[in-house]
Design a protein around this nucleic acid. Structure first.
Length: 519
DNA sequence: TCTCACACGTA
DNA sequence: CTACGTGTGAG
């Protein structure tokens, strides 16, 4: 499990000189002890004032407990929260500068796992990753002072296995390993979402990696959840202690068995305690693409006055990388870089997100390009990586998508979801522009109070073909986490083809890291 | 494998 | 009180 870091470092080093420098800086910081809480501090790519940013994972010990056993997160159609919750402490932000905090969950490797004989093992190749969604923390954009004032929680983020999820939840595949990441994006006027030089940094805490499951596989994980999650208190007592108790009582009455204790799948003894090893190969290197989702329906908190404006929130901690990139706008270059990568890949897909139509604040989104807060808020970002991440991790791009939705109350009957999603199309383009477009589109909606009108914006995401030949040289091992900034990979386009009713494709920003250049 | 109604708990 | 987050266990 320590691999990731190492690998990470290597990758960075190799890739880009600039990165290297940055890396060194971050190491110094780490050594100072500031990052002590974060077990997996990693490289930071800096740019424009992102250099002093530090992120600490809250309750890292608890995460580690789970990680030692092999963390599993339930994924359901309706969306399930993660536990432990992803909360982070952030320092080093400019108090007056505005930032957008968001989270995404990228594939940790390209394997499919199975749990048998009380342990996890690789059972095949992973399914093509869909474009990942990004969850924007509900308070975004907010000042550095706001973010540093207290823990930033992504508790409300939900995971789903519904590839057509209309709620903006993060879509994952069961029995696949994932790595949550946090991104901090500078949202100043001069550096708004969508702008060419968006500065951002990514933090990855390797101990937060997990395997998505439809039902718990390892009983030890079930127990840890029950013992630590307040909402599962009703099941406490079932574990060790309980068993013992049970055994006593049980003998007489009925076979009362503790609720949790009994259920294990492997069939083997529930308590066998072996630790499972996730095979963590981490092989990372694949490209993943992420999209963002957005919105949180009313269910979530709404910090703001605004009713719905929430986008998604993500919360989690990790180490980070900072990068700022300018898109290569040189037009060509930039695009080429990433375009190249995904072009080959194939189809793009856009993910939709929704956004409630309401937004909070004043502002007209319409006019302004991404400068307005609201616009920014609406935008969703996703990043995609280059494919061979292994070697080429290079590209990162953030794109934004937003939808306008309305959904006041968020939830709607599944049947009529106006929104559907997806599709994919990828437009991909230069992003920035689109962002602005986004903003514009959105605005109109606000008027509706009703929920049915949602407009969706899709974005295109670059996908990469996973299948791509990885060179021999490619090292597959790189930890996903290590993805530099955002690299997700995305395998070839997914098969999903859904087409949305209507959407506009919007997209946003792409950021390409320096290391991209390694071509 | 996945989905669901359920009891039980938090907030 | 309501809303909703939990794992359960049968289907």
């Amino acid at each position: 499990m320590g691999d990731p870091e190492e690998t990470f470092g290597l990758q960075n080093t190799q890739r880009d000189p600039i990165t290297k420098e940055l890396q060194n800086e971050s190491k110094e910081e780490i050594q100072k002890g500031t990052l002590s809480k974060s077990p997996s501090p990693q490289t930071t790519y800096i740019q424009q004032g992102m250099e002093g940013i530090k992120v600490y994972l809250h309750e890292g010990e608890l995460w580690t407990k789970f990680d030692e056993v092999g963390t599993e997160m339930i994924i359901t159609k309706a969306g399930r929260r993660m536990f432990p919750s992803y909360k982070v402490k952030v320092t080093g932000l400019n108090p007056k500068t505005k930032y957008i905090l968001l989270m995404d969950v990228v594939p940790a490797d390209d394997h499919r796992y199975k749990f048998a004989d009380n342990k996890w093992s690789v059972s095949g190749k992973a399914e093509p990753a869909m474009p990942g969604r990004l969850y924007v923390h509900q308070d975004s954009p907010a000042t550095g002072a706001h973010w540093m004032r207290q823990l930033v929680s992504f508790q409300k983020l939900k995971l789903t296995n519904n590839h057509l999820d209309p709620f903006g939840h993060i879509i994952l595949n069961s029995m696949h390993k994932y790595q949550p990441r946090i991104h901090i994006v500078k949202a100043d006027e001069n550096n708004g979402f969508g702008s060419k030089n968006t500065a951002f940094c990514t933090h990855v805490f390797s101990e937060t990696a997990f395997i998505g499951v439809t039902s718990y596989q390892n009983h030890k994980i079930t127990q840890l959840k029950i013992e630590n999650n307040p909402f599962a208190k009703g099941f406490r007592g079932s574990d060790d202690l309980e068993l013992h108790r049970m055994s006593r009582v049980q003998s007489k009455d009925y076979p009362v068995i503790p609720r949790s204790a009994v259920r294990q799948r492997g069939g083997s003894s529930p308590f066998s305690g072996e630790r499972q090893c996730l095979a963590t190969p981490t092989g990372m290197g694949f490209p993943y693409s992420c999209e963002n989702g957005v919105t949180g329906p009313s269910q979530e908190e709404q910090p703001q006055s605004g009713p719905y404006p929430t986008l998604l929130h993500h919360e989690r901690n990790q180490d980070y990388h900072c990068s700022k990139r300018k898109v290569a706008e040189d037009s060509d270059t930039g695009d080429h870089l990433y375009r190249k990568s995904y072009m080959e890949s194939s189809p793009g897909e856009g993910d939709p997100y929704y956004r409630p139509s309401g937004y909070t604040q004043p502002l007209g989104l319409g006019g302004g390009p991404y400068r307005t807060e609201s616009a920014q808020r609406q935008a969703c970002m996703y990043a995609s990586m280059s494919p061979g991440a292994e070697l080429v991790p290079g590209l990162e791009d953030l794109s934004c998508n937003a939808w306008a939705g309305v959904a006041p109350y968020g939830v709607q009957p599944p049947e009529r979801l106006p929104y559907q999603h997806f599709s994919a199309h990828f437009a991909s383009g230069p992003l920035v522009t689109r962002l602005s477009a986004l903003a514009g589109h959105d605005s109109p909606q606000r008027g509706d109070a009703h929920s049915h009108t949602h407009a969706l914006y899709q974005s295109s995401v670059p996908h990469q073909p996973l299948a791509r030949p990885r060179g021999p040289s490619a090292r597959v091992q790189s930890p996903p986490v290590s993805l530099q900034g955002n690299e997700y990979l995305y395998p070839s386009g997914g098969p999903h083809t859904l087409s949305p009713h209507q959407y506009h494709t919007v997209h946003s920003v792409s950021i390409i890291p320096d290391w991209t250049q390694n071509s």
